[in-house]
Each structure stands twice: as C-alpha cells, then as structure tokens.
Amino acid sequence: MLQIRRIYAEEAALALPRGQDIVARWPEAEIVPVASHWLIPEVHGDETNVSRWVRIKTEALVLGVKKSLTTRLNGRSADFIAPSTANGCAMACAYCYVPRRKGYSNPITVFANIEQITAHLARHIHKLGPKHEPNQCDPEAWVYDIGENSDCSADALVSDNVRDLCDLFRMSPTAKASFATKYVNRDLLDWDPLGRTRIRFSLMPQAIAKVTDIRTSPIADRIAAINDFVDAGYEVHVNFSPIILTPDWLTAWGELLTQLADGLHVRAKAQLAAEVIFLTHNEQLHEVNQGWHPKAEQLLWRPDLQEPKLSQNGALNVRYRRDLKAGAVESFRGLVARLLPECTIRYAF
C-alpha cells in the first residue's frame, strides 16, 4: 500500500513528537521541507500529475500541522464532524470528492499536532454532556465522524493518530467515533474500543468496485471482516455507496446483499445499519479521470441519466435525475427489506 520515499514536511510538524514518530517509520525517506502542506505543486494542485497519480499516492507523504480546530454540525453520518487528523488517501477511487479540494494526486497528509486535536474533542464532548434525545445518528451517544477527508484504516498505517482518537472515545461514555473505510486493517482488531468506535465498511458489487475502487480491499474481504470487528468490540455499519446505475444494477446489488446476509453472524446482523448514497459526480473530476482511467468514466459519467447539482461549496456536480433517482431509492429500499431485513437504513439519498 505504502512505500514512502519522500516526506514533505512543515518545520512545525517535524518539531512535534508525532512528526518525529512518523519520520522514524521511514528512515530512508527523503525529508523535503515545505512552507505549507497545501502548496506542494509536484504533489498536488498540478493536474499534469494525472499519469503519476497512483505512484505519488504510494511514495509521497505530507506532514503538517492542523491550524484550524473546529467541530462542525453534520446530522447525516454523524452528529458532528471532528477536526481532521489527516486528509487525502493512499487509495484512488475514481469518484472520490476529496481531490476536488486539494489537488488530484492527493496522497495522505497527516497532522502532527494530535494532542491539540484530542484536547479540543475532549472539551467538546465534555461540554455537550449526555445525549437526551435519540436521532438517526445514534439513539444514545453523540457521534463524531473522525475521517471526513481520509480513510482512517489506511491512516493507521502512517501514525498512531487514529488509535489516539479511538482511545479518547473509548473513555467517553456519552460519545462515539465513526469513520467509513474501504481498507481492511486488521491491526485495529487489537485496540479494544469497548463499542465506542463505529466502523462503516463501504460496499458495492465487486464488478463495479474492480473498475472504480482502485487500491482498496476486495469487497469479499470487507464483508468477511465485519464479524471479526464486531467480535473485537466495534460497532460495525455498512455504507452502500456509491450506488452506480447500470442496466443490471438491481441484480448485482441483490447478489451483494445475499452475500452479506449469508456471511454475517447473528450478533453482527443485530447491530447492523446502513447509509445509502447514490453517485454524485463532478465535471472537472470527469475530465481528469479521462487522463488516467477512462474506463471508470463509462460507468460514472452518464449525461443521459444525470442532471446538474450545485453543491454547498459552490461546485457544479451531476447526480441522477430526480425522477429516476426517486424510483431507484425505493427499489433499493425494497431490495434491502427483502434480502437483509435485519439491516436498518439510517438514510438514503
């Protein structure tokens, strides 16, 4: 997954204990000083890097300091979005929204000021106190998404940041950590989270994942890991995401749901819940993908099925037409009810 040869590092990050720990993991790597983790043209921000996309993700790591520590309201995957301890990813999913913000090669950037981040979260959790009313995020605990712009399972290969966060929530009876992942990192099985960390394994039919989920764990491995993570003390949900409409999409998802139903033990099914997210794509990302993975765009870019959508940050995206999507959502809900009735759908859009 990672063969780090260059670490682009802010001076302030190198001075921190976590920064020194990260550098020590790759003693042969070249340390390249940078003024800002956001401004590294040879790594991100230069679309001509598209032909080197995966190589950059494999060989480059960025080390910085998180300047702004804010916890934001969410209400979908979680009650709150925690400050990032990393952004970017070692994987290269063709539909990923994160590169639109940072640049298209988008390797892992890890933040070394973990003590400041955990202290901020501890204060936020303490100030909130108990959760008195259930909601779709959780009936009892405040849920904090700790991996909005990265994959925490992969981040845990780079530093102990994710473990430090999970340890914080392990000792927080009123709150839970949550993150989505497409990578099975079995080292996490030894962490003993005491039910205070929710892992959401993202799933889709393997034939689609083979084209769009580049450098991720196979779908069968993700499904096989669910029982083990439940047994290890995690709450495990699934993300059916993104749902990509193809001529046989319902048949393919039916096969996946059957595979999931057959593979989960009783305790895993009893605590299972899902988020359902249909594909949203982006014209600029489409153009970049054409330079490195046009086969994926045959699935993702469907002007005959899609309509423009203005995102909250002002970007022009495309999504499936409302009339088409409404029917697809209902069809998918019915499929889950029939093939995996134990699974609660927390939301679908």
Rank of each mutant, 00 (worst) to 15 (best):
L2D: 09
R6A: 10
I7N: 06
A9D: 00
A12V: 04
A12G: 09
L16W: 02
L16N: 06
G19T: 09
Q20A: 12
V23S: 03
E30S: 07
V32F: 00
P33E: 01
V34T: 08
A35W: 06
H37I: 02
L39Q: 09
I40P: 12
H44E: 09
H44A: 13
R52D: 14
V54M: 15
K57V: 10
G64R: 13
G64D: 13
V65N: 05
V65C: 13
S68L: 14
T70N: 05
L73F: 01
L73M: 11
L73N: 05
N74P: 06
G75H: 03
S77L: 14
A78G: 07
D79P: 03
T85G: 06
G88D: 03
C89N: 11
M91K: 10
M91S: 09
M91P: 10
C93E: 01
C96T: 08
Y97C: 13
P99R: 13
P99A: 12
R100I: 10
N106A: 04
P107I: 00
N113K: 03
N113C: 05
I114P: 12
Q116L: 05
H120N: 05
L121T: 01
H124T: 05
H126Q: 09
W142R: 13
E148N: 11
N149V: 01
D151T: 02
S153K: 07
A154F: 14
D155P: 07
A156L: 02
L157G: 08
L157T: 03
N161K: 00
D164V: 07
C166S: 13
D167N: 10
D167Y: 07
R170N: 15
R170L: 15
S172M: 13
K176L: 15
V184C: 04
L188D: 03
D192Q: 14
D192S: 12
L194Q: 10
R196F: 14
T197Y: 06
R198P: 15
L203F: 11
M204C: 10
M204S: 10
I208P: 02
I208K: 09
T212F: 12
T216F: 09
S217D: 08
R222E: 09
R222F: 09
I226Y: 00
N227L: 02
F229P: 00
Y234D: 08
H237S: 08
V238Q: 10
V238M: 12
N239A: 15
S241W: 14
S241R: 13
I243W: 05
I244E: 09
T246V: 08
P247I: 01
W249R: 02
A261I: 11
A261G: 14
V266H: 15
V266Y: 12
K269V: 01
K269L: 05
A270R: 04
Q271R: 08
L272A: 06
A274Q: 07
L285Q: 02
V288R: 00
V288Y: 00
G291W: 00
Q298H: 11
Q312N: 12
N313L: 06
G314Y: 02
A315Q: 13
A315K: 07
L316Y: 04
R321V: 01
R322K: 15
D323S: 15
A326R: 15
A328E: 10
V329H: 06
V329N: 07
F332R: 06
F332E: 02
L335Q: 00
L340Y: 04
P341R: 04
P341E: 01
C343Y: 05
R346M: 04
Y347Q: 05
